[in-house]
């Protein structure tokens, strides 16, 4: 499939997902009322629901999905490991831990930027730790094990922080931070996440050519003039800033970054750089569709996004683990 055709198809899919996200919700609004509101008319109720509840939610779904999909593609390319992605490597949970500390210990009240900054910082520390522990390991599983360790520790840290927080309801919120949700977000959340995601996407796309060169190995890449240290720094910062900003408003959403590159790779020439942009667009579509899904599944209270993405992602994760079995 040609790259232009693939991108056009994925863009169409993401647009459909975005539109579906605007059309679904817990309040029954028929298409006529929504269309009237969309054209600037309509009743104030429909306008409020469409523009203040569903629109920020759809935008966040698309942006966060793009960030997670792209991070997965970039990490898989850089580490040459099919299981690498922000959640598996612990970056998502660590960023959620930073957000939890900022929110529940009053730091976020100091300045609005504290929340994403702390999430980015903790995400960066986690990624740095995983890279340090296992970035050059022979077996791809070592990296995953290091990631699982960091993710588990960050998850435990979230629980501990919420139990220690001077807030009687904090313990109830553990689920939301560990499983992720886009419910009831506002444009204030979009304003936090979008700039971080834009920076993250820019940094990761910048690395595309270097990732292709790295497919030849570190020495080969250096011979081609790739500055490995800078490439790694851009990758770490890109993932940490983008995922940190996203997680600060949605909580940790797992597996999107894992699934998406595997879904789009067969339609590309399989070079790391060719997977990047399609993964971003496909990630946007996938997460937004998952978010439509949590609204359609009838449950007494809305499902968390991580529930749906885990059901989609774990089979792929296991399939790859089984393929790696000979290395155990």
């Amino acid at each position: 499939m040609s790259r232009a055709l693939l991108m056009a198809l994925l863009a169409a899919l993401a647009s459909i997902a975005g539109a579906a996200s605007l059309l679904t919700g817990s309040a029954a609004l028929d298409a006529g009322r929504l269309a009237a509101a969309l054209l600037g008319g309509g009743d104030p109720i429909a306008r409020t629901i469409l523009f203040e509840l569903r629109l920020p939610r759809a935008l966040l779904g698309l942006a966060v999905g793009a960030m997670l999909g792209l991070s997965g593609a970039a990490l898989q390319g850089y580490l040459r490991n099919p299981l690498a992605e922000p959640a598996v490597l612990g970056a998502s949970n660590a960023a959620a831990l930073g957000a939890v500390i900022a929110l529940y210990f009053g730091l976020a009240a100091i300045h609005p930027a504290v929340l994403p900054l702390l999430a980015i910082l903790t995400g960066l520390v986690a990624l740095g730790l995983v890279f340090l522990l296992a970035g050059r390991a022979e077996s791809p599983l070592t990296l995953i094990l290091a990631g699982v360790a960091v993710a588990t520790m960050a998850g435990a840290g979230i629980s501990l922080a919420l139990n220690l927080a001077p807030n009687p309801f904090a313990a109830i919120e553990i689920m939301a931070w560990l499983m992720g949700s886009l419910e009831d977000r506002s444009f204030a959340h979009v304003a936090v996440a979008l700039p971080c995601i834009a920076i993250g996407i820019a940094l990761l796309l910048w690395d595309g050519r270097a990732l292709d060169a790295l497919a030849l190995g570190a020495d080969g890449a250096q011979a081609l003039g790739v500055d490995l240290a800078r490439t790694r720094l851009r990758l770490l910062l890109g993932v940490a800033i983008g995922v940190g900003g996203a997680v600060a408003v949605t909580g940790a959403i797992g597996f999107v970054g894992l699934i998406v590159p595997h879904l789009v790779r067969p339609f590309t020439d399989r070079s790391p750089s060719a997977v990047l942009l399609p993964s971003a667009v496909a990630g946007a579509a996938l997460l937004t569709l998952a978010d439509v899904g949590v609204r359609l599944i009838p449950a007494s209270s809305e499902l968390k996004l991580g529930v749906v993405t885990a059901f989609l992602g774990v089979p792929i994760f296991l399939a790859h683990l089984l393929r790696e079995r000979r290395l155990w």
Binding site: N167, D184, S186, G251
Partner: peptide, 12 residues
């Protein structure tokens, strides 16, 4: 100021 209470501050 936490996630659960933030929903009550929603502009909508």
């Amino acid at each position: 100021d936490d996630q659960g209470a933030q929903m009550l501050q929603h502009t909508a």
